[in-house]
Design a protein around this nucleic acid. Sequence first.
DNA 1: GGGATTTTCCGAAAAATTGCCCAAGGAAGG
DNA 2: CCTTCCTTGGGCAATTTTTCGGAAAATCCC
Lengths: 224, 224
Amino acid sequence: MMKLLIVDDEPVILETVEAKMRKEGFTTFVADSAEEGMRLFRRIKPDLVILDIMLPQRSGFDFCRAIRKDSNTPIIFVSARADEADRVKGLELGADDYVVKPFNLGELAARVKAILRRSTGEPVREVIESGNLRVDPRSHEAWIDDRPLNLSPKEFALMYFLGRNVGQVFSRETLLDRVWGREAFISGRTVDVHMRWLRIRIEPDPTNPTRLLTIRGVGYKFTG
Amino acid sequence: MMKLLIVDDEPVILETVEAKMRKEGFTTFVADSAEEGMRLFRRIKPDLVILDIMLPQRSGFDFCRAIRKDSNTPIIFVSARADEADRVKGLELGADDYVVKPFNLGELAARVKAILRRSTGEPVREVIESGNLRVDPRSHEAWIDDRPLNLSPKEFALMYFLGRNVGQVFSRETLLDRVWGREAFISGRTVDVHMRWLRIRIEPDPTNPTRLLTIRGVGYKFTG
DNA sequence: GGGATTTTCCGAAAAATTGCCCAAGGAAGG
DNA sequence: CCTTCCTTGGGCAATTTTTCGGAAAATCCC
């Protein structure tokens, strides 16, 4: 789970930003001063810092410099001033983005995600090959013997997941959790149905599966 | 010995870049304005120019144009904006590469070397050709079978980006991030609409796209 | 082996999501 | 001021996802 450190001396901003980021699924830590922020930073090692420039005593710029000394953690500056000089100074100190108050919370969240996406690098998206089956997440295509399967989004996600875990059995619950997502309130029957679609796609005889096997009482597994 | 001209109005950037390039064995000259840069350029005839787009008074674009009038000296643009439109504009003006702040000094040095190495060869500002489609960022024109498509700026930027990444799927989010730029905070719907314009331009039957495909639930991709 | 029980599979239809088209408002640039 | 281009939103259509009841299959227990 991604950890965010939010540093701002205005309680209202702190609260609203924290609430929003929580809702977006981040783990948040807050500080209302540079000192406290620095302490927290060292302790929790956040994945990204949202930092107000105007802090009492030490400014955000100082804070940024201090962080940059021994870390590449992405930093987003927040400022009440739309000053281009500040902006440049921030970027030059190694900030990754610069947002001017009053900002849109959705926008801020979008930028946080964009930067994390960039800095953590794209999630590993490599081609899966298993027997005569090939799955390419980059082009979002799948083939059997160069014959393109036309998978629906969910079918593709399921196939890709199974392809990355050949031979392993997964319960419906686990599949819902890992393919559908944690928040999915969906009956386990749904998994059955999708397995059926997938069998129709990749099994020569869907009635007698040879690769997408049912492990009765447990779940399903994909054997290469 | 290779001579580099660095033009930027931010003293700190000027210093850090200069220090790095010296360490890499280049002879450096710096200017903090377009005028000064132009003067130096004529006098020292550098082998490559590193140029900030945002300069006071005359913009880097103007500078670039002026240089290109009577020289092929490679130019690397540096900008705080990751806007694809800027990128296209830069390449079209004859820039050889385009680096977004905050940049990694090592990366910048690597690019400088790469460009100098092939300064006799072909530059980065490549013409894209894919099937019967051709996109030329320098003239800002695109054709299908020598029939000129009249692309709007955004259409062109989008087409150019997709053309450089044939076969890859991009989410609306990613497209907004990489084509519109990190300043952009706009709805994903906008991407749809531009895709439609583009389809009208490049697809024989825009209702049944064959090259600019929708990947439902994921995004879009351009297949050569 | 036979019957009961559990689990999975099938067919179809409802529900939800997503993308496309159309049109209008606004911004930018000449 | 006019034109072009960008952005947004509503309504509609198509696809996809999910649900459900009953049939089939596997397992268990005797």
